[in-house]
Each structure stands twice: as C-alpha cells, then as structure tokens.
Design a protein around this nucleic acid. Structure first.
Lengths: 224, 224
DNA sequence: CCAAAAGTGTTAGTGGTACACCCATGT
DNA sequence: ACATGGGTGTACCACTAACACTTTTGG
C-alpha cells in the first residue's frame, strides 16, 4: 500500500501558444524515445522537489523557448491511470501565451528530435492525452478572452486595431464585425492611442495603440 | 535525481459544500495526528494507483458522507513545496455540492476526531493551505453560478422560488431583487412548474418547481 | 486610376436593474 | 385583524448585432 502510493510520478506539460503567419500555433516537440517514439508531444518535465508547480512550468517554458515573464496559467490536472502506457504519471497542464517576436527556440537533441510550431487546426499525431490537453487550453483561452484582456499577450507592444481584431478572430475561430469590434475596444479603457502610424504597410497607414496596463489593476485582474 | 522524483506524494482534497440552517457550509474533519493535530482539514486522501483523479475524489466523498452521484469538479492543483511541513505533497483540489438531506456522515475514529459542517464565514483554524483551497472553491462556485445551473445541486428535488433565491444569495453572499430574480428564472427554461404547493409552511402556500434536466443537454452543459 | 486596407454611425433588440404594492394563509 | 411570506409589472439604461460606404495610400 505504501509502496503503491510512492510509485506515482508527476509532471507538468505546457501548451505554449503564439501567433505566427496569421495562425494560432502550439509548440510541440518530437519524441526520440518510446513510448510514442516520433510522435509529437507537449513540452513538459518532472516537477522538482523544491519548486512550485508554476516554477516547473516556467522552467519548461524557459528551456524550450528562452522566454520568461509570460502569461502562464494552470489549466487542469490529468490523471487517468491509462494515460501513460507504462507507469502512472499524473500531469499538471499549463498554458502560456507568448509573443512570436520574443522566441528563441532551443532544445536538447538527446531527448528531442525537433521542436516546431503547429497550427491548432492541423495537429499531427500526438503522444499520450496531449490532444485533449491542447483542446482544453484553447477552450480556456476562449473563455478568458471574453472577459479578460489576454489577447495583448500575443501582440507586440504597439499594434493596430486590425491586428488586435485578427488576434481575437484567430483565437475564437470566427469572424467579428469590424465596426462593432472597434467601438467596443475604443470605448473600453484597454487601449492607449499612440501618436505613430504604421509606415511599412503598403497601403493606408494605420493608427498604433498600446495596451493600457493601468486597466489590469483598476479591474483587479490577474496578472501573469 | 531519480530518487528525488520518486519522493513526491499526491493526494486529493475535497471541498464538500451544502446548505444547512440557511447557511453555506463546508465539511471539515478534525485531525488526530501531527502535523496540525486538532486543526480542522478538508477530507482528503492519497490517490490510488489504479484510480482516476475523479474517482479518488468520489471515494473520499463516499467515505465521509455516504453520498454518490453528486456534482463534483476539479478545482486546481496546489503544489507549493512548503504547503506540507514534512514532505512534498501535491494535492489536487476538488469541490462537491451535495443536498443536505442526502447526507449520512461517517468517519474512521482512528484518523479523525470529528467531522463537522462549518459556515464558510466562520472557519476555524485550518491545516495546511486548506483555507486557500476553500476560498478558491467558493470563487469557482460563484463563477459557475453566473452561467450554469449549479444551485439545483444544493436543493431538494422540489423547491420554491424563494428557496432557490435564498440559495443564490447564500452562494453569492449578497441580496437579490425578488422580482428580477423570478422574472429571469421563469423566462429561462430551467424550471418545470409543478401542480403542488407547499403545505407545511405556516403562511401562504408557495408554488413548487423542479429542475428541468432537458436544459442541460439542450445547452451542452457539463453534467456531474 | 485601381487595389487594398483604414476608418466611421445608426437602428433595433435584448437583458439587466431599480422600484412598491396586493394576496393568501395561519394564528 | 394582523403578521408573514408569496406573488406581480413597468420604465430606463447599457450592451449587442446587423449593416455599407468613404478615405488614404502605393503601385
């Protein structure tokens, strides 16, 4: 009985999301070993004795992408005894939102064959229950988007309203009316209007905005 | 390193909520052993190798209250390395809603001195981080109440609108306008109006309603 | 001058909130 | 007859959703 208790293993797995090439993407690593050799999996790892769960997730994130100070939230804990084919592994799922521009992918070639971004609508064959974890993350992100300004975590510091709208659309997987969207955003206190306009674009320049961080405190929202 | 990984322990702790004597209450057990001897704690236990996390929470619930088929939802996983004074114990928090009428409290006197309902506004000194877990459960319950018919899990099969309103008020911790509440409830499809009226009450009889279970499926809500 | 993205208002409907009095029953 | 809880409607406001054309720039 006591022996039984001791033989659980516990890990974190992190659904790392970003926007690349106009698509919402998740970072996956390709396994070099059994079980699920050659399948893709979420970046994850064992939880060390001295670290909190959040710290374990941050460490995994740092190891794979080199970023820190990102939006990170615990999702759910997955513990089906059959989720791992060989032993009992319980995993605490996390999801993170990162800015594509900040990323510096890196990995240890012993354990990982490749690290790659995959569109959430075109997922490869996944190890364990990782497909379910990704779906859960997207569901949670959509819920958060309704009443919390998470989209800004995926955008650069300065962005146009069209970029913001596209971000919402990519997350929600549906189109939004442009006028209604702008009206709502501009009447909220989320945005700070900047002096600058876009210049690179080959068409009419667009106004740039930044996210008004004072909003977070004013509304008692969770910070990352 | 490998040894380190093996020395995590993992438990479930369940915040069991009900309504008794017009108050929202949580079930606590009094510890007979160190650490936290004589302090009150959430019912919990180790997760067995062969059971899912949900099953572990259901087992704990069954052991303490004798009820099954109740609303049960995973809350969050708590894993601060310092949350347990002696070893590294990660706990998966759950919360459950049960009908006061269904309860048959029972406990093993070796490990537990007492099992008792405590008003959520008058909590005793709690073991570990259990106060935080309870607060988290109440927060989650309030969120759920906004867009999901969880309150019915705490009520008998047949109930009056006033009972329903009081349940909402107890959970939210604030008063609700009677006319607006009734209008909203009656215009939803949540309720089935019954023929019967209350008789026991010493005042004007009240219409009885039951919860319309078809609503759950129609709106794709999670069942318990 | 054409293509492409930026920008802009009004209307109708829906849902939330505030608010006060009469009704049926038991004692 | 009175005390107690049951039951009812209206008006205002805020938010959502539907919907089409003009403006600015680069090529």
């Amino acid at each position: 009985m006591f022996n039984e208790i001791r033989s659980h293993e516990i890990t974190v797995d992190t659904v790392i999301l970003t926007i690349r090439k106009k698509k919402l993407k998740v970072l996956l690593v390709q396994r070099t070993q059994e079980p699920f050799k050659d399948h893709w999996a979420l970046p994850g790892g064992y939880i060390r004795l001295s670290e909190t769960l959040d710290d374990a997730a941050k460490r995994v994130l740092m190891e794979k992408t080199g970023v820190k100070n990102v939006y990170l939230e615990q999702l759910y804990t997955f513990g089906d005894p059959l989720r791992h084919p060989k032993s009992r592994v319980i995993t605490v799922g996390y999801y993170a939102l990162i800015r594509s521009e900040d990323i510096q992918l890196s990995f240890d070639t012993d354990q990982t064959k490749a690290v790659k971004w995959h569109s959430i609508y075109e997922l490869p064959s996944l190890a364990y229950d990782h497909k379910q974890i990704i779906e859960y993350a997207i569901e949670r992100l959509r819920e958060r988007l309704e009443y919390t300004p998470v989209a800004f975590q995926l955008l650069p510091k300065r962005f146009t309203l069209t970029q913001l709208q596209k971000t919402y659309e990519m997350i929600l997987g549906k189109e939004i009316d442009k006028r209604n969207f702008r009206k709502k955003m501009l009447s909220s206190e989320l945005l700070t209007e900047l002096e600058e306009m876009t210049k690179e674009g080959s068409k009419r320049p667009a106004r740039l905005y930044s996210f008004n961080k004072a909003y977070i405190e004013k509304n008692h929202l969770k910070q990352y």
